[in-house]
Amino acid sequence: MSRHDHDRSELSETELRVRALETILTEKGYVEPGALDAIIEAYETRIGPHNGARVVAKAWTDPPFKQALLDDATKAVGTLGHVSRVGDHLVAVENTPTRHNLVVCTLCSCYPWELLGLPPVWYKSAPYRSRAVKDPRGVLTDFGITLPAETEIRVWDSTAETRFLVLPMRPAGTEGFSEQQLAELVTRDSMVGTGFPKTPGAPS
C-alpha cells in the first residue's frame, strides 16, 4: 500500500501532518524519493525475533558459544553470519533455576531490535515502564507467569546504549532436538523475560 492509496477525505489529522512533513523533507531535498520505502521494507523483512531465537538455540546446543555469548554477546553474535549485525553493546543475561531476568526501558523504549524486531506496544507503554522495576512479579502475572517465591528476579533497566537479550532456560523434553527445532520454541517474550519458551507438543 503506498501513501497515495487513501481517500484524502478520510485522512486523520495525524496522517495529514505526516504526509505534509514527508512532502517538505522530499521537496527540500533532504530525503531521496523511495528511500523511506526502502527503510520500511528493510525493517519489515530483515529484523525480528527469529534472529534472537537462532542465537538462543545455538547457545542451548553449543556450550563454548554460550560462554562466548555471556562473555561478549556482540562479538559472539557477530560470528553467526546468518544473523543480522547487531552493532555494539549487546549483553546476554542467563535465566537459571534460581534467577529470572526481565528487561525494561523506563525512560523510553530501548530494545535489542536487530535481534527481536521493533518493540511491541506493551513494551513501550506506561504500565510496563512504570511497574517493571517496582513490581516485576505483578507484571509477570499480567503475562500469565508465576515464578517460585524464592526465585530472584533481576530487572535490567536499559538506560544507556547497552541492549539486553535474555537467554531463557532450555525446555525439558527437547533432548536430541536440532538447533532449528529448538529455535522454533523460542518466543520473543522469553527473550525479554515476560515469557517462557514453548514446550514441545504443547498447544501454541
Binding site: V18, G117, L118, A126, P127
Partner: peptide
C-alpha cells in the same frame, strides 16, 4: 497506569503513517 496488556499477533505497525514516521 494499570495492567500490562499484550496484543496477540501484534503487527509491526498499526497504520502506514507510523512506518513513515519511523522512516523519517
Amino acid at each position: 497506569f494499570g495492567s500490562v496488556e499484550a496484543e496477540p499477533n501484534e503487527p509491526m505497525f498499526h497504520a502506514r503513517w507510523e512506518a513513515r514516521v519511523m522512516a523519517m
